[in-house]
C-alpha cells in the first residue's frame, strides 16, 4: 500500500488501467442497457417499470460501496498519513453522492406508479437519504478550511463516524417491516429473482463498478495534476532565485 504513496508510480498504474476500465465501462453499459431495456422480460405485476430497477439497484449498491471505500480510505489517510488515500477519499465523495442521488431519484420515479407515492418515510429510504446528507457533509467539511490538508483530516473523521449508517441501511429492511421490499439478491439461499432479470442486473452492476473505477482514476489524476500546477505556481511566484526552482 505504501508503494502507491508515490504519485508517479500511481500514475503509471492508473495509465495502464484506464484504457481497460474505460473500455469495460462502455462495453458493459452497452450490453447492460440492451439487456435491461430490450432483452429482458416485462414483470408480470410491474410491467415495464421493472426496468427502473436495473439502474436503481446498482446505484444503491454503489452508494454503499463507495461510502465503505470512503471510510476505508479515510482510515488509511488518518492512520498512515497516506497522501494518495487522502486524494482518493476527496475524489470519490462527489461520485458516491451522485450514485446516492441517482438511487433516490430512480426509487422515487419507480415508487410513484408502484407504491402510489414519490416518497415515504420508510427506514430504508430515510437511511439512504441520511447517507446522501453524510456525503454532502463530508464534501462541505473537506472544503471548509483554508488549509486543504486540515479539511481532509476533519472530513476523514466525519466519514468514519458516519460509517455507522451503513449497517443500518443494509439491515433496515429486516429490522423494520415497512414498504421497501427486503433483499432478494444477496441472500444465503438462492437469489429470489429469476435469471432472466438477474443477468441484466449483474451486468449493470459491473458497468457501474467499471464506471466508478474509471471516474475515480480520472479524478485522482486530475487532483494530482492540480497539485503539481499549484506547486509550480508557488515556485515561479517565489522568483527565479528560489532555491527550490534551481534544484
Amino acid at each position: 500500500m505504501q508503494r502507491f504513496a508515490n504519485p508517479l508510480r500511481f500514475k503509471r498504474l492508473s495509465g495502464a488501467l484506464l484504457p481497460w476500465t474505460s473500455t469495460a465501462t462502455l462495453a458493459l453499459f452497452a450490453a447492460g442497457l440492451w439487456l435491461a431495456l430490450a432483452a429482458s422480460p416485462r414483470d408480470y405485476q410491474q410491467g415495464e417499470t421493472v426496468r427502473i430497477m436495473y439502474v436503481h439497484v446498482p446505484a444503491a449498491w454503489m452508494a454503499m460501496f463507495v461510502y465503505a471505500n470512503l471510510a476505508i480510505a479515510s482510515a488509511v489517510a488518518l492512520v498512515w498519513r497516506h497522501p494518495l488515500a487522502e486524494i482518493a477519499a476527496r475524489a470519490m465523495a462527489p461520485v458516491g453522492a451522485c450514485f446516492t442521488a441517482l438511487c433516490l431519484v430512480t426509487g422515487s420515479l419507480w415508487g410513484k406508479p408502484m407504491w402510489g407515492t414519490w416518497w415515504v418515510w420508510d427506514a430504508r429510504l430515510t437511511s439512504v437519504l441520511l447517507l446522501f446528507f453524510l456525503y454532502l457533509g463530508y464534501m462541505a467539511l473537506a472544503n471548509a478550511f483554508e488549509d486543504e490538508a486540515r479539511g481532509t483530516r476533519a472530513a476523514s473523521i466525519l466519514a468514519l463516524v458516519g460509517a455507522v449508517n451503513l449497517p443500518v441501511i443494509k439491515f433496515s429492511v429486516d429490522w423494520w417491516n415497512t414498504l421497501h421490499q427486503p433483499a432478494s439478491v444477496s441472500r444465503l439461499d438462492a437469489p429470489a429473482i429469476h435469471p432472466a432479470m438477474l443477468t441484466p442486473l449483474l451486468v449493470m452492476a459491473l458497468a457501474f463498478m467499471a464506471y466508478f473505477a474509471t471516474v475515480l482514476l480520472w479524478r485522482i489524476e486530475a487532483a494530482l495534476a492540480e497539485r503539481r500546477v499549484a506547486a509550480r505556481r508557488m515556485l515561479t511566484e517565489a522568483g527565479p532565485s528560489s532555491p527550490a526552482l534551481r534544484r
Binding site: 441520511l130 446528507f133 454532502l136 457533509g137 462541505a140 467539511l141 458516519g162 449508517n165
Partner: peptide, 9 residues
C-alpha cells in the same frame, strides 16, 4: 456547517 454535519447523526 456544524448543523449540516450533525443533523443526519
Amino acid at each position: 456547517l456544524l448543523p449540516i454535519l450533525v443533523m443526519p447523526l
